[in-house]
Amino acid sequence: MNKNITLIRELVRREIHSRYLDSISGFVWLIVQPLMLLLIYGFVFSVIFTVRFPEAETTGFLPYLAVAFWPWTAFSEAVMRSVNSVTDNAGLIDKVAISSEVFPIATVISAFIMHSVGYLAVLLVLTAFGVDIHWLGLLPAMIVLVILFVLALALGLLVSGLNVFVRDLEHMLPPVMMLWFFSTPILYPASMIPEKYTHWLDMNPMSGLMTALREFLLFGDYTNLVGLILPVFITLLLLLLSIWFFRRLSPRFEDFF
């Protein structure tokens, strides 16, 4: 156990260094890439489509989008990078007695560490531009981020283990994540979803999390903690399933590299 913690720490350190810090622009890209996406979405939706909804009236579309967009980016990057985290380290797993789960765990941790830094930077920038960020809401928002992290961890374990057996998964995952992105109230508020689809969206743990983030940070409304119960429940269920799944498969990974 101790060994795994040291190992995860070392892997996270390494990943952060190589992915984000080693290239001079790495750290800049960490902010710039989501920022550019944010601007593109902002341009397309608020300038071209001129989308208007009451929730964004007070804050403006960009801050409304940004508050949910960064956590989503952390989540989706964590999951998409996890897919290959076991197979990419086949050389190591096949030569050294090592618990394979350290790789997806380290990948998810490093993605969240780096994007949390980016998130904080974005919140500061928004404040600087006069957006009224409720800093007290950061505390309950942390809870949401932790749930998001656990959800990413659960899915990371699931997809990294599955990818050993089904190599096509890495190609299947990006469109699935994109579908998830668009069916989650990130670009739009949950209220815009037509009545007949709402019960489907309730199944999506992500929608409750994103809505909660906005309520906490943009509107200073901390009453809706109840809305987190279902996402927490689904997340824990998924985590248990993933752990079972990974434990079943991981002893045999070496046979399938």
Binding site: N2, K3, T6, L7, R9, E10, L11, R14, S18, G91, L92, K95, V96, I98
Partner: peptide, 27 residues
């Protein structure tokens, strides 16, 4: 096991020492 098992080519020798040491359970 085998030559350079557990070494990552992109990383420096020093970083690989750290990784290898943590693989072997050194704090």
């Amino acid at each position: 096991l085998e030559l350079g098992a557990g070494f990552q080519n992109e990383f420096s020798g020093m970083e690989n020492i750290r990784l290898k040491a943590s693989l072997l359970g050194m704090s």
